[in-house]
Design a protein around this nucleic acid. Structure first.
Length: 562
RNA sequence: UGGGGCGUAGCCAAGCGGUUAAGGCAUCGGGUUUUGAUCCCGACAUUCGGAGGUUCGAUCCCUCCCGCCCCAGCCA
């Protein structure tokens, strides 16, 4: 009858539809999902999409979500990343509770499963080297050739596999392979490698093992061990699903999770692969994994993005199977929307220009009352010191401005936010360079607070700060890291060629209202008429904040002047 | 005819045989405003990659065609 309440419900994506269907059919009362990062780099916004999906489903349907580190390759993985990944997942607002796992937790079980495969004549030790194996694999259009070692006896395989485990062979001399079908049109099914010899120290198991299981083999069995119901991964693993199912079927495991693939996130003006992010860090194109220009979770955090804004972003872009490119503007919009609600408004001047109020007493200081949030009285107000000498934004003054410039110009009157109307009388210039040094104005004492008793209107309101009370500080403005929409588009051009040389602009001489000395690292504010800024987590010190611009305000004035 | 996937507006994305083809971003108008912000209103696909077919009726089912993405690591 009345479907008005249903109207604004966001439709379920295809994965959630499957979860609901499984719930309704009784297949799974509650879902168990997992987020399975490899600890070989920092998490980025693409991982955030997966985290929000997996943990989100668990939250919404009364299930659980495991955090499982997929650590099957000891040569690439490090503890430092484990620590950072945990911090990022928590910061995003998710809790794995007791469910913290490592694929390496299952190394013993995985080994037993491999022995079982051999006994079922579904795996064999192969002595082909990497190059030979590549040749035997065939091509996309031609079937592969069977390995000469394919029909070894169970006993021989068992003996050889034990020897592999005991370190009796060198790396690369033997592998354990699944015995499936060398003629399969799906290359993943052409007797894939299950175990390889790696004489490396593992970050958790140390030197216990010198053979390590491969991803395809490990992942399905780890999921199975944890009784995962829905194993969500990205599209490129679609071709691996038959193999995922094959291992579970052959081993007749009690549980058989369902792998479901979705499209990874692409954002324009950035790169998303861990390898490329790593390169930017190692070659010092950025100042670390948490550089505010990086779309890593830690970079976004340092940039001033809130966890809620990232979650909202992920919810907004949805889940599907289409390869899509999201505009960076959508991400920026997500922070604006969140910060617009929660960020206190303050006054700060990025590029200071001195203003002298010639008819204001030399030694006088007044308190000006300013709202902390014009739309939210609950956020209260504060007082701003006002005196004869002020700073305003250099871009808010033009000697001979065009008509539509609603700011200060010679002979023009504007409002100083919350303070007084001022009229510009003259400018003082550097005789050599012509640079404007000072602007001389008069104020109307009757306009205290920003309203004229005679009812006269003023077109513009500009921000300001009292010169002798201002806190001088550094503010960093960030722009997109790349100058083109898709830095990866041309395979013949290195993506780093497209780095935006102006992605970081540091302003060391900004003047902000004095109350900002009390801010703590991570606090965010809106500098009115400028944008949202946060106190840098690393480079700020007590009483001396360094600000990062998270994102600018929408600016229809700048837009029309393009 | 290797195999697997995907095509709805500038960018995302609902839609599940009968809808005025949701919603968001962007864009363009208008209003409010002591932030050129926010907020509020309005405009924005006769059409769903193309062509056929099934059906009273197709974005949705079938066929063919076109386009894009993924796969030949002892990476994940």
């Amino acid at each position: 009858m009345d479907n008005s309440t249903e109207k604004d419900e966001k439709p379920l994506d295809f994965i959630r539809q499957i979860v609901v269907a499984d719930q309704e059919s009784g297949k799974h009362a509650t879902p168990v999902t997992r987020f399975p990062p490899e600890p070989n780099g920092f998490l980025h916004i693409g991982h955030a999409k997966s985290i929000c999906l997996n943990f989100g489903i668990a939250d919404e349907f009364n299930g659980t979500c495991h955090l499982r580190f997929d650590d099957t390759n000891p040569t690439k993985e490090e503890d430092e990343y484990v620590r950072a990944i945990k911090e990022d997942v928590q910061w995003l607002g998710f809790d794995w509770g007791e469910n913290l796992f490592f694929s390496s937790d299952y190394f013993d079980k995985l080994y037993d499963f491999a022995v079982e495969l051999i006994k079922r004549e579904k795996a064999y030790v192969c002595g082909l080297n990497a190059e030979e194996m590549r040749q035997h694999r065939g091509t996309l259009k031609e079937p592969g050739k069977e390995s000469p070692y394919r029909n070894r006896s169970i006993e021989e395989n068992l003996e050889l596999f034990t020897a592999m485990k005991e370190g009796k062979f060198d790396e690369g001399t033997h592998v354990l392979r699944a015995k499936i079908d060398m003629a399969s049109p799906n290359l993943n099914m052409r007797d894939p490698v299950i175990y390889r010899i790696m004489k490396a120290t593992h970050h958790r198991t140390g030197d216990k093992w010198c053979i390590y299981p491969m991803y395809d083999y490990t992942h399905c069995l780890s999921d199975e061990q944890e009784v995962i119901t829905h194993s969500l991964c990205t599209l490129e693993f679609e071709d691996h699903r038959p193999l995922y199912d094959w291992f579970l079927d052959v081993l007749e495991t009690p549980s058989h999770p369902r792998q479901i693939e979705f499209a990874r996130l692409n954002l324009n003006y950035t790169v998303m692969s861990k390898r490329k992010l790593m390169q930017l860090v190692q070659e010092n194109h950025v100042q670390g994994w948490d550089d505010p220009r990086m779309l890593t979770v830690s970079g976004l955090r340092r940039r001033g993005y809130t966890p809620a804004s990232i979650r909202n972003f992920c919810a907004e872009i949805g889940i599907g199977k289409r390869e899509s490119w999201i505009d960076m503007g959508v991400l920026e919009n997500a922070v604006r929307n969140d910060l617009n609600i929660i960020a206190p408004r303050v006054l700060g001047v990025l590029d200071p220009l001195k203003v002298v109020i010639t008819n204001y007493p030399e030694d006088k200081t007044e308190d000006i009352k300013a709202k902390n949030h014009p739309q939210n009285p609950d956020m209260g107000s504060r007082s701003l010191p006002f005196s004869r000498e002020l700073y305003i934004e250099r871009t808010d003054f033009m000697e001979d401005p065009p008509k539509k410039f609603f700011r200060l110009g010679i002979g023009r009157e504007v409002r100083l936010r919350y303070a007084y109307f001022i009229t510009c009388e003259s400018v003082v210039k550097d005789e050599q360079t012509g640079e404007i040094l000072e602007v001389h104005c008069t104020y109307d004492p009757a306009t205290y607070g920003g309203n004229a008793p005679d009812g006269r209107k003023v077109k513009g309101t500009i921000h300001w700060v009292s010169a002798k009370h201002a806190l001088k500080c550094e503010i960093r403005l960030y722009d997109r890291l790349f100058a083109v929409e898709n830095p990866d588009a041309d395979k013949d051009v290195d993506f780093k060629e497209h780095l935006n040389p102006n992605s970081l602009q540091s302003l060391p001489n900004c003047m902000v209202e004095p109350s900002l000395a009390d801010l703590a690292p991570g606090d965010c504010v809106q500098f009115e008429r400028q944008g949202y800024f946060c106190v840098d987590l690393k480079d700020s010190s007590p009483g001396q904040p360094v600000f990062n611009r998270t994102v600018g305000l929408r600016d229809s004035w700048a837009k029309r002047n393009k």
